[in-house]
Simulated assay, not measured.
Amino acid sequence: MTSVATPSPPTRRRRTTKLRRRQTRLAWLLLLPSLAVVAFVAIYPLGKTVYQSFTDQEFLALEPTSWVGLQNYRDLLHDSVFRSAVWKTIEFTLITVGFEFALGLAIALVVNSSFKGRGVMRAIMLVPWAIPTVVAAQMWKWMLDDTFGVINDAGVRLHLLSHSQAWISNPHTALAAVCAVDIWKTTPFVALLLLAGLQVIPGDLYEAADVDGASQLKQFWYITLPLLAPAILVTLIFRTLDALRVFDVFYVFFGNRPDTQTMSIYAQDTIVGSGHVGYGAAISVAIFLIIAFFVIIYVTFMRVTED
């Protein structure tokens, strides 16, 4: 009887290494079409914007574009309007993302439990998110109007308001009004993302916790939150990106009012309204860097928490 010789450990390691290399090459070949599309629709426009930020390009200018180096960025550092837009956007982001996360988590926990009519509840909660943002903003703008808005009319009739309030035109209430609309509109989206994360948590963990006598608060703190961390990270990143790039709600409510301009509105007004393409590109690059900074903070915080 002849015996089959088994490969030695070094031979098996070489075969495994070759197999991994072939799999890696195959993976890159399969990814090349997608990478090419991403490079065309994302990397190329970003690279062109960065290049334009170092020039004095003007829209429909008669003179040729020239290289100005970091001049646009130096001007940006001393631009008081841009600084105001940055702080206004960050303030809006902190308020809306904080409230939307808290309310969305509460809604997700409720609709994730078993009760009669849960399916109808899930469908109804998505109605605000399904309405186009511009339509929702215009609808709330009419409702908050100080002359014929239903909000003021209901407040006066119920004796909650002594007189009609100019919610949108008043600088002290303008930000609160637009934040309230965004929270109403986007909280269902946050709840949907968190609900998806809750549904992948095994129910056996909660049954074992009940057997051990753990309270609902301890189950939430030691089971739900740690296992929901990936979904929380994705939710916060998505909402922070959207909030820092906010344009439509502010533009419908306030137009180009200097005291309510966001970073995106200021960039749009600089490029389209004033025609300063080079300077507007520098503003766009600054917005990109600010958003990247927030994403790095989120990812770093989650890694530290996991460690």
Rank of each mutant, 00 (worst) to 15 (best):
Q216C: 00
A174I: 10
A180G: 09
P258Q: 10
S274M: 15
Q216N: 03
L77T: 13
V246G: 04
P226A: 05
R257H: 02
L227D: 02
R122M: 11
F250D: 02
A123I: 12
F301V: 15
R22Q: 09
R239Y: 06
P45C: 08
F293H: 07
G117R: 11
Q52G: 00
T6V: 14
K18L: 12
P9N: 11
I151F: 15
I43C: 05
A102M: 14
I290G: 05
A137E: 04
T187K: 06
Y206H: 08
T16W: 10
I124N: 01
L158S: 14
P10H: 12
Q52M: 06
A136R: 05
S274K: 15
S164I: 06
P7Y: 05
L62K: 14
Q57E: 15
G280E: 02
A166N: 15
L26V: 04
F59E: 08
Y44C: 00
F250I: 08
W221I: 02
G273P: 05
G203Q: 11
L158W: 13
L195K: 01
T55H: 05
A196S: 12
V181P: 01
G275Y: 05
W129T: 01
D269G: 04
T186W: 12
L195I: 09
R20V: 10
I131T: 10
P188F: 08
F189I: 06
L160T: 10
I201L: 09
M121V: 14
L241I: 15
F99Y: 10
Q71N: 15
Q219T: 00
V234R: 00
G203V: 01
S84V: 06
E58S: 15
I290F: 14
A42C: 04
D269A: 12
I168N: 09
Q199K: 12
M121N: 06
R83G: 09
A36W: 05
S66N: 14
F92W: 14
G255C: 04
G255D: 03
H163M: 13
P226H: 01
G47F: 00
D56Q: 03
L46I: 11
R21A: 11
D79P: 07
F54N: 00
Q199V: 08
G117K: 04
R12P: 00
W67S: 14
F253K: 08
G203D: 09
E91V: 05
R157H: 14
S84K: 07
I296N: 12
V295G: 08
I131D: 01
H159T: 14
Y44R: 13
A267R: 00
T11Y: 01
